[in-house]
């Protein structure tokens, strides 16, 4: 049995968190699985928890200074259904678990869980999202890409909570999403690819390609993105195989119960090829 805190406000939540070290608990859809035991037995939680999923002040979507700001405890269902949500994020959430879990799960939970297979994280990283962290000491904003540092590891301080996800609105951007799950629905990712790019006058002016479940963290290859930026589309089409290969060499997938490293490498490379085709109108 552990202490379970049910704060009425964010302020109270921060107090509980900083004074007791309670672990943030959003929808619970990861924590309750990891520490599950058996019917009639309490979950084996190793630490106190502070419940956050009910905090209305962290449930919103609104535009601010060219960015979409999403309250960290907004349920995945509400994020997915909202008109302001970018299509890439909608697609990614739409393929996460199933409605009942999406009604509980939140972006803060998916981010805080820091799984390399986190589908919303993959899309958010391709969208250059950052997150706001709050503590009694104040607030800071960090790039999501830098927030997660390893499987299950983040730079969240002991007294901090994730309060907001900030997604820049890429006017005129094009996006592409593909999840290869263990089945067609209600599945975990074997790998996923999120891409977001912009083209001006046949020149690629912006590109982000994020790969999920093929490395210890959701992976972006900035060097390849930098090389592609500024290239003319036909040139990218010409370098298709080379670019696919560079991605293939950059990823370090593992064998696990869901798939094999060899498959993840091959499929990721093929899917990068599909992104490039979509980009350049090839194939």
């Amino acid at each position: 049995m552990v202490d379970v805190y049910h704060p009425k406000t964010l302020e109270e939540a921060l107090q509980f968190r900083s004074s007791t070290g309670a672990v943030p608990f959003s929808g619970g859809t990861d924590i309750m699985v990891r520490y599950r035991t058996s019917h009639g037995v309490l979950p084996d939680l190793p630490w106190p928890i502070v419940l956050l999923g009910h905090l209305k002040e962290l449930q919103y979507l609104r535009l601010r200074k060219g960015s979409l700001c999403i309250g960290a405890e907004t349920t995945l269902t509400d994020v997915m259904d909202h008109e302001l949500t970018p299509p890439l994020l909608k697609q990614a959430i739409g393929l996460m678990a199933a409605p009942a879990l999406r009604n509980l799960g939140t972006l803060a939970g998916n981010i805080g869980n820091a799984s390399p297979a986190g589908d919303a994280v993959c899309a958010l990283i391709a969208l250059d999202a950052s997150i706001e962290l709050a503590s009694p000491r104040g607030r800071r904003v960090v790039s999501l890409d830098l927030f997660i540092v390893g499987p299950g590891r983040t730079i969240l301080a002991e007294d901090e909570l994730i309060t907001e996800i900030i997604v820049p609105i890429g006017e005129g951007h094009i996006s592409w999403y593909k999840k290869v799950g263990t089945r067609r629905a209600n599945a975990l990712s074997k790998l996923s690819v999120s891409a977001d790019w912009a083209v001006d006058d046949n020149v690629l002016t912006h590109v982000r390609i994020a790969l999920g479940a093929v490395a210890p963290v959701v992976l972006r290859c900035r060097d390849i993105e930098d090389d592609m930026t500024g290239m003319k589309l036909p040139e990218i089409a010409l370098q298709r195989e080379d670019l696919m290969n560079r991605y293939k060499c950059s990823i370090t997938p593992i064998d696990d119960q869901r798939s094999s490293a060899a498959y993840r490498k091959q499929a990721a490379s093929n899917l990068v090829g599909a992104v490039l085709d979509e980009m350049t109108g090839g194939r």
């Binding site: 379970v4 049910h6 608990f25 929808g27 619970g28 859809t29 309750m32 699985v33 599950r36 979950p43 928890i49 419940l51 999923g53 009910h54 269902t77 409605p99 009942a100 879990l101 009604n103 509980l104």
Partner: peptide
Amino acid sequence: SVLKDRRVVNSCMIPVAAVEGC
């Protein structure tokens, strides 16, 4: 599955404290 505020949820995933006020 049960309904929590008219939406379907998995009751095996919900700590009872999280249904406060629901």
